[in-house]
């Protein structure tokens, strides 16, 4: 955070410049060396940068830390493997059994691991970021810096969001490349809806796991993964199967978005409790989903959990 402190040039006429004879004299006077006020930065006033610049500084630092994370590159390698695995499997497995026979359907089938991987990836990336600060004791150094804790949290959260978007957009690209091997026709509308759902789900998952990391000191990664990928879906599925909520209500749960992103593309399966059940009995019809309402709910969910996380850190005693 070397650029955290910025210099501000003095406004002409306002600085109180002492007269030449009032300046303190030292032993250096004898050396004949002289430096002007500008060269010596005597008229520079230092100040704390604004909130936005604080967020940017933390974001850049966190991105630098993420760039050393092997797990991110591992997921990218898995994404690169999508078309390769498809080429190897297409002759021995009938993908028409798990998805509609179209380019978009195949993309959905190839991305069927999305809910599971998004859960575990965001939990390890965003869920661990704040606990790691305290476990490594670096929080005690960083939070002592003259910056707000809100900016500190926002910068770290945004870095996680950007990395997650990059990884999953890359996976989408790889799945598209895989489907282009066999199919030359795509449902653009489904692709647009699925893409939007994926971006929304990134916000939902990252905010939730980040907030869990702010509340839980140890084991935040596994706890947040279990809650968002297994416990919540099972409870929602139980409510849906017992008619406490109808299908349109069921599809509005934000944590269902990765599943719906796959199912919208034409896949019959996704790697989650709901997605596996949907393979056996079609329980949802993503075509009837209200995407706008879902986006509003997802945005509200993301903001709520992010604010909760920030409040938890603000109130935390060092």
């Amino acid at each position: 955070m070397s650029d955290l402190f910025k210099r501000r040039e003095s406004v002409p006429g306002t600085a109180q410049e002492p007269a030449e004879d009032e300046r303190p004299k030292g032993t250096w006077e004898d050396s004949g060396y002289r430096m002007s006020d500008e060269e010596a930065h005597r008229d520079t006033v230092y100040h704390i940068p604004n909130q936005f610049m604080q967020v940017v500084a933390v974001f850049k630092t966190q991105m630098s830390l993420y760039s050393k994370r092997k797990s991110i590159y591992l997921v990218l390698v898995v994404a690169v493997m999508i078309p390769i695995l498809y080429v190897l499997a297409k002759d021995i497995f009938d993908f028409g059994m798990v998805a509609e026979a179209s380019g978009t359907g195949l993309i959905g089938a190839l991305l069927s691991m999305l809910p599971f991987i998004m859960g575990i990836f965001t939990a390890s990336l965003c869920g661990s970021v704040m606990p790691a600060e305290f476990n490594d004791r670096s929080a005690y150094m960083n939070m002592a810096l003259p910056m707000s804790r809100t900016a500190f949290c926002l910068g770290k959260y945004l870095a996680g969001v950007v990395i997650t978007i990059g990884v999953f957009v890359f996976a989408y690209g790889m799945a598209m490349a895989g489907s282009l091997i066999t199919y030359s026709f795509f449902d653009e509308e489904a692709l647009a809806k699925s893409f939007t759902m994926m971006l929304l789900s990134v916000l939902v998952y990252t905010s939730f796991t980040f907030a869990m990391g702010c509340f839980i000191k140890r084991g935040a990664t596994i706890v947040s993964f279990l809650i968002i990928a297994i416990v919540l879906p099972v409870i929602e599925l139980y409510m849906f199967m017992n008619s406490y909520i109808d299908m349109s209500g069921f599809m509005l749960f934000p944590n269902m978005l990765p599943d719906l992103a796959c199912l919208t593309l034409g896949s019959n399966i996704s790697m989650s409790p709901m997605g596996v059940l949907n393979m056996l009995v079609h329980i949802v019809n993503p075509a009837s989903m209200d995407l706008l309402l879902s986006a509003v709910i997802s945005a509200a969910w993301s903001v709520a959990f992010l604010v909760l996380g920030i409040i938890a850190i603000e109130r935390r005693e060092m």
Partner: peptide, 10 residues
């Protein structure tokens, strides 16, 4: 990865 492809109407 970009190669030939096509689009939709219902």
């Amino acid at each position: 990865s970009v190669s030939m492809a096509a689009v939709d109407s219902d």
